[in-house]
Amino acid sequence: MSETREYVPNVIKAEEMDPKFKYEISKLPGAEKLMLCFQCGTCTADCPISRFNDFYRPRKIARMVQLGLKDRLLSDDALWLCSTCFTCVDHCPQGVEIAGIVRVLRNLTVKERAVMPLVSKELASNILKAGYVYEFPESRLKRREMRGLPPLPKPNLEDVKKIFELTGSSEMLEKAKTFEKVKS
């Protein structure tokens, strides 16, 4: 709140628009109904995140995808402010899964721009190392035992590693630069 964001000019130039982008995005699971969005703004009005910052606007994101403003979308870290509460999905009168579109755009940012939040990279590396998003120190496992809790199920790290490789995630993680915080 205290920090100001970079000024992005509002005038859209024709060469910024990629007319094929909307069709590419519409093919991806979660974003199929993109073209049904008629900009009523219900998603933004009901979005709990939009209430508390001036940058994350789901309606605007949907319109920008329709217009093919790929560069602007993938370089805007406001994309990472969606908390996936799915209020927009439930409230959209056209059945557009806005949160799905945001997820598709996040995935695309990671894939094409090789950038992701630091926290995602850390969680991924923990999952690869431990199967869980945390590495459990011995002391915590001991405490479980002392409390009479059953031992934690063991991870199958070989399978986990394979899943990361099969889905192209290992390569994404290796290449990806990270950012720490999203200003609001």
């Binding site: 699971p29 979660g30 990472w80 996936t84 997820r103 598709v104 996040r106 995935n107 990671v110 894939k111 992701m116 939040p117 995602s120 969680l123 991924a124 999952i127 199967g131 869980y132 998003v133 059953p150 934690l152 199920p153 063991k154 991870p155 199958n156 399978d159 986990v160 899943i163 990361f164 889905t167 192209g168 995630s169 994404m172």
Partner: peptide, 19 residues
Amino acid sequence: EMPEFNCCGFPMDPINHDL
């Protein structure tokens, strides 16, 4: 108890849906 375990996948959805 689960015989084996890995993270449900929730924190990985933003970076790779297939993962």
